[in-house]
Amino acid sequence: MKISLHIRGTTFLRIGISIVILWFGVQQFLDPTMWVGFIPDFIIKLSPVSPTTLVHLNGALELVFGSALLLGFFTRISALILALHLLDITLTIGLDSIGMRDLGLTLATFAIFLNGADYISLDRIFFFKPEEETRI
């Protein structure tokens, strides 16, 4: 039996980015007060809910789409939504050292959107046609 150690870059990138997203999502539930400072003032003024709830909402969004990305479930749409979310964060923070790091994450997530579903994903199980399996 042959065991291949070859890991596709697309899978590695998808799982790596999803771990980062999930970590941030979990942190926003564990200590939301730490993240309230990142919400722009105008959103707090416009929002009918408390800043803590906004952090929970943001954390839930990251947990759901981060999980979808980790599992490779609706990979393209999940990656696009997360890339737009990260772009919004980047623009809010501004292009300082932290913003440039976030820009890197945004571009990496956008690369997942461009790649689409890879071979170790639920999309493969649900959406690949049987004839495409033979061409892997």
């Binding site: 564990l30 939301p32 007060t33 709830t53 929970h56 954390g59 839930a60 789409f65 979808a68």
Partner: peptide, 25 residues
Amino acid sequence: IFLCATAILVFAITLLGENFVTTPS
């Protein structure tokens, strides 16, 4: 359907966070 399901999940997780996750606040 996926986006609707995620919206419901996001809403549910937010509610769970509001009510059950112990936070400093």
